[in-house]
């Protein structure tokens, strides 16, 4: 396989570093106590909406459901035009075409999972074909998974080469690389996998598929954000971070934003650099925005189910 990677795998060892697990958890726990109120909270909630990848990855998804979600993505709060649109609608490859047709040039982009999501256990040529088809159907962003089996067996070069090939298959589409941190077993491995993905050309690194019980956690987000910071220090190439899985309410979302702000700074508080992958988070954000403006909570039945 010819690699046209921007960096070589040696970069991973050159940046190196290891994670103090207890320290990372304590720091994340301490950052979780920072409080954001009033105007800043409203701004943070608005930012969280703008950073949302509204996601539906179910076997029962249909073009109809995608159209419905697309209208929600473009106008999350039908009665309140001041609420911004989300960043992307994230779907399975078969549903990219209806999603692209529904979203048109609304500013909400189409993201598609690919490469045998969520396990990644299909042959490489099929995985790459999946990416090419999704891009051809109109996907602007591709969420791929790494081969955890190869990574855990120590075949870093395989993982690296596959990401390089995926990046090439993406063409102009943005590549997000899912590490599935819940399967990696340690913060050190999460850091290493992050560095491999970035060296191989990932535009974003992403925590989880959301398909296994252990998904995004604050310490994981911190460890990955620190890996990005170190990567940027050495290469000058800026990489985004997407946290996904299990983030259901605004309070948690704001904690992630605090970790990003304190680790990577203000420049990362934008949809170009940071995303939430979530399905039920958006409704809670809408509720909290309403509460923040009106001073009282609305009935949850006033928000759409999907």
């Amino acid at each position: 396989m010819a690699t046209t990677a921007a960096f070589s795998l040696d970069l991973v060892d050159r940046i190196g570093g290891s994670v103090d697990a207890v320290g990372a958890e304590e720091r994340a726990a301490r950052l979780a106590t920072r409080s954001i109120k009033k105007d800043s909270k409203l701004w943070a909630l608005d930012l969280a909406v703008r950073c949302c990848d509204l996601t539906t990855l179910e076997g029962q998804d249909s073009p109809g459901k995608i159209r419905q979600l697309a209208s929600k993505a473009m106008r999350p709060s039908p009665t309140d035009p001041s609420v911004p649109h989300v960043a992307a609608l994230c779907v399975y490859p078969r549903l990219v075409a209806p999603a692209a047709a529904a979203l048109m040039d609304s500013g909400v982009v189409v993201a598609s999972v690919a490469t045998g999501f969520p396990s990644g256990q299909t042959p490489l040529d099929l995985r790459l074909l999946e990416i090419e088809r999704a891009v051809a159907d109109g996907a602007d962003e591709i969420d791929t998974v790494i081969s955890r089996g190869a990574f855990l067996a120590g075949n870093d070069q395989t993982v690296f080469d596959e990401i390089v090939a995926s990046k090439r298959a993406c063409g102009d589409a943005h590549l997000k690389v899912i590490l599935e941190t819940g399967e990696l077993g340690s913060y050190d491995r999460i850091r290493k996998a992050s560095l491999i993905a970035m060296a191989a050309g990932a535009d974003f690194i992403k925590t989880s598929t959301g398909k296994i019980p252990i998904a995004a956690t604050l310490p994981t987000c911190l460890v990955m954000a620190e890996a990005i910071r170190d990567f940027v220090d050495v290469t000058g190439t800026e990489v985004g971070l997407k946290v996904a899985g299990g983030i259901r309410n605004s309070k948690e979302a704001i904690r992630y934003l605090v970790v990003i702000h304190e680790t990577l700074g203000d420049e990362w508080l934008t949809p170009d650099r940071f995303r939430f992958g979530a399905s039920s988070l958006l409704n809670d954000l809408l509720m909290q925005i309403d509460k923040q403006r009106k001073g009282f909570y609305s009935d949850p039945d006033r928000y759409t189910l999907d």
Binding site: R34, S35, I36, K37, K38, D39, S40, W43, D266, L269
Partner: peptide
């Protein structure tokens, strides 16, 4: 640009 401020 950012209105990121922590509460006292």
């Amino acid at each position: 640009m950012s209105r990121w401020e922590y509460a006292p």
